[in-house]
Design a protein around this nucleic acid. Structure first.
Length: 521
RNA sequence: GGUCUAUUCGUCUAGGGGUUAGGACGCAUCCCUUUCACGGAUGAAACACGGGUUCGAUUCCCGUAUGGACUACCA
């Protein structure tokens, strides 16, 4: 049988990084098994619908390289793939359950439900849910007779349809990650299947669609594990064979760290946008400018825009809760597909550590061809109206590639190549700008004129000549030269910098620094 | 509170009845170097605790502690 998996997000905002990992694991498994990956949009909660979220999800998956074989955005034999467009389908199956006495109408209002919970709580009950015990006290088609029920419905009284969970039954299934899960039906409650607005809840819609769309493996977040027994029961009630389940461990929030990486405060729980914001890393794959499910406006920079490569993100995410059993840590998407097995996924959540993601990014940046980095640099400079030749861009990339983690750092850290220093780092002036250095720099500047072909080598040779003549070591002048040229005390190779700056500019900057800076010692 | 579940360096993890408990990120030191990075070398750093079972337990069993998920007409 062909493996068919699905990624089924609800369009309640931008796709969370955890969702990306769930999609990734689904994709890896599908590809590994030679199967298909479906995308279904679970938009049964109209209140939390966020415009643009669906497009965002599709674009995000595309960016990370997860290819959808069937579903929303690409179509397929089981369309529509948006649950809000499948209302009648669910209706049919609830009617079936109702007819077979496996579900019932419930007319209880919010107030009545709350009163029930309060009453139970006051009585010291451990369980305050709507279940096989409490349903006998409530206003539903089980306690009301047929005429009363019909009257209420005909009068337009709002109602929901609940599943009638059996009293005595052991529900068990074998999860591909968690192994056997066994639960007694008496711990389950009579979950709402159909809401009063006529749309199904996740539980019903999910089972119906997974069955109709011939899903063979349900790979989803761990937060669904507690309701999995209910889903198994539903499959049984509908007379269907349940798919295989695999519940993925959650991504947990990191501890709060200071700049040195020391723990300021231990943090626990699943990773949220709040945590990411506070600790300064992205939570969404792409930048999101929109609302969240609560209707609040949000702007949040994505991994892509922050300079993360998709290769790095995927590699990092895949290794959060999974490994291939060897010491291998660097995986391309194809290699991940090749070595992926659900059995090697952990049962327990893992803390998110952005420092590891950065390390992956640095690695993948170095894998990039210089030309790609140079093009990016030229583009970035163009946006600031700074002209830069291809040749110069190549030199800068060569200078910076091994020094940065993100591509944008190449231009952020080389502003001095396009602009003479406005300020000189005070600490360096104090300690390194002395009479000896100034004398040497003056000599070097004067000697510069004689160079016909100016480049890193000739500049270096010239500098050495000057130093030899004066009988001084190179360390005497380098900090001062760097200061004059860049305004800073440290940075990339100075000879290369002079090369990129050119003879004129190098000479000018030395002259300016000598004019501007006061000699202390 | 209830249901389910987990626990190896700070973090991600390998391993599994007998190991010097391995790797990676991060951290520290040294080397390279004109500086800062990069790179190289080295180092500090872990089997939650208590009982069993066993010749032997970090590994198996039971408790305890702690962590996690869920406990909506949200998904």
């Amino acid at each position: 049988m062909e493996v068919r998996v699905r990624f089924a997000p609800s369009p309640t905002g931008a796709l969370h990084i955890g969702g990306v990992r769930t999609a990734l694991f689904n994709y890896l498994f599908a590809k590994k098994m030679g199967g298909k990956m479906l995308l279904r949009i679970e938009d049964t909660d109209q209140k939390r619908f966020v415009p643009g979220a669906e497009e965002y999800i599709i674009e995000s998956l595309k960016w990370v390289g997860i290819h959808i074989d069937e579903g929303q955005g690409v179509g397929g034999p089981h369309a529509p793939y948006r649950q809000s467009e499948r209302k009648e389908i669910y209706q049919k199956y609830v009617q079936q359950l109702l007819g077979e006495g496996k579900a019932y109408y419930a007319f209880d209002t919010d107030v009545e439900l709350e009163a029930m919970r309060q009453r139970l709580k006051a009585a010291g009950a451990a369980n305050t849910s709507y279940n096989a015990l409490t349903r006998t006290q409530m206003r539903n088609s089980l306690t009301l007779n047929e005429d009363q029920t019909k009257q209420l419905i005909d009068a337009g009284t709002p109602y929901v349809i609940r599943i009638k969970v059996p009293m005595k039954e052991e529900i068990r299934f074998k999860d591909l990650i968690r192994d056997w899960v066994v639960v007694h039906a008496n711990t389950l409650d009579d979950k709402v299947l159909m809401k009063s607005d006529g749309l199904p809840t996740y539980h019903l819609a999910n089972i119906v669609d997974d069955h109709l769309m011939q899903i063979t493996h349900v790979i989803r977040g761990d937060e669904w594990l507690p309701s999995a027994p209910l889903h198994i029961l539903l499959y049984k009630f509908l007379g269907w064979e349940a798919p295989q389940f695999a519940h993925l461990p959650l991504i947990l929030k990191p501890d709060l760290l200071d700049e040195k990486g020391k723990i300021i405060e231990e943090r626990h729980g699943k990773l949220s946008k709040r945590d990411a914001d506070e600790m300064g890393f992205p939570i969404f794959p792409l930048t999101w400018n929109g609302t969240n499910a609560d209707g609040e406006d949000i702007t949040s920079v994505g991994y892509r825009e922050a300079g993360y490569y998709k290769e790095a993100l995927i590699n990092f995410l895949a290794l959060l809760g999974w490994n291939d059993g060897t010491d291998k840590e660097l995986f391309s998407l194809d290699e991940l597909i090749d070595s992926f097995t659900l059995g090697r996924i952990h049962k327990t959540g893992s803390k998110f550590d952005i420092r590891k993601a950065k390390w992956f990014n640095q690695h993948y940046l170095r894998q990039k061809p210089d030309s790609e980095l140079a093009d990016g640099l030229v583009n970035a400079l163009q946006q600031k109206s700074i002209p830069c030749s291809q040749e110069k861009a190549n030199k800068i990339v060569h200078l910076m590639k091994e020094r940065v983690t993100f591509p944008q750092e190449i231009h952020e850290q080389t502003e001095f190549l396009f602009q003479e220093p406005a300020v000189y780092e005070e600490a360096v002036v104090q300690t390194k700008w002395n009479q000896e250095a100034v004398t040497l720099l003056t000599a070097f500047k004067d000697e510069l004129v004689t160079i016909t072909e100016f480049n890193a080598e000739t500049a270096k040779a010239t500098l050495h000549t000057v130093l030899e003549k004066a009988g001084v070591k190179i360390g005497k002048v380098m900090p001062a030269l760097r200061l004059a040229l860049t305004g800073a005390g440290h940075g990339p190779d100075l000879m290369q910098i002079m090369d990129i700056l050119g003879k004129e500019e190098t000479s000018n900057r030395i002259k300016k620094a000598i004019d501007k800076l006061v000699v202390i010692g």
